[in-house]
């Protein structure tokens, strides 16, 4: 009859509200469930996945040598043109032949979408992705970087 399902309707409504309250009450009392990460404070203990694609870098070994031969295959692989390779010809000491070498490896960090296709395309694994993510700078042209250090040369035997 009308009154019966009127009351049943109210009872089920109150029960459903009560279960909702019970659950939020549980979370109110159990602080161990809190998942907030205190970013600036936990900076030193923060561990990032080593495959994290943060920024393209060119590793140099201790005597300032890298593996980039200037073949521009990464520039072709880049979907949005954020890599610009300027090559130069320097004379090889023994053979006297002119060999192509890298002059500047211009990297537009502001254009880069971290897709990793350049690292994939590089035949000599000269570049890799570094897990850095704090890229904010005050001046935009600080984001245009030169990856090969000044005065660095190609490592011998890298073809």
């Amino acid at each position: 009859m009308f009154i019966k399902d009127y009351i049943k309707d109210i009872a089920s409504a109150l029960k459903s509200l009560a279960t909702g309250m019970k659950m939020t009450g549980y979370y109110f009392t159990h602080h161990k469930e809190i998942i907030t990460e205190q970013y600036p404070d936990n900076r030193d203990t923060l561990v990032l996945a080593e495959r994290f694609k943060g920024e393209v870098v060119m590793p140099h070994d201790d005597n300032n040598e890298h593996a980039c031969t200037g073949c521009t295959s990464c520039e072709l692989a880049c979907p949005n043109g954020s890599i610009k390779i300027i090559t130069k010809f320097d004379v090889d000491a023994e053979t006297g032949k002119r060999k192509k070498a890298i002059d500047t490896w211009i990297y537009h960090l502001d254009l880069c979408t971290m897709c990793g296709l350049c690292v994939e395309a590089c035949p000599t694994n000269a570049i890799k992705m570094a897990p850095t993510f704090e890229h904010s700078v005050f001046d935009r042209n600080k984001l245009v970087k030169k990856l090969n250090e000044d005065g660095s040369k190609v490592r011998a035997g890298v073809e």
């Binding site: 979370y27 109110f28 809190i34 907030t36 205190q38």
Partner: peptide
């Protein structure tokens, strides 16, 4: 109260 219910600080 809002924070603790929403599992944050």
């Amino acid at each position: 109260v809002a924070a603790w219910i929403q599992i944050r600080l």
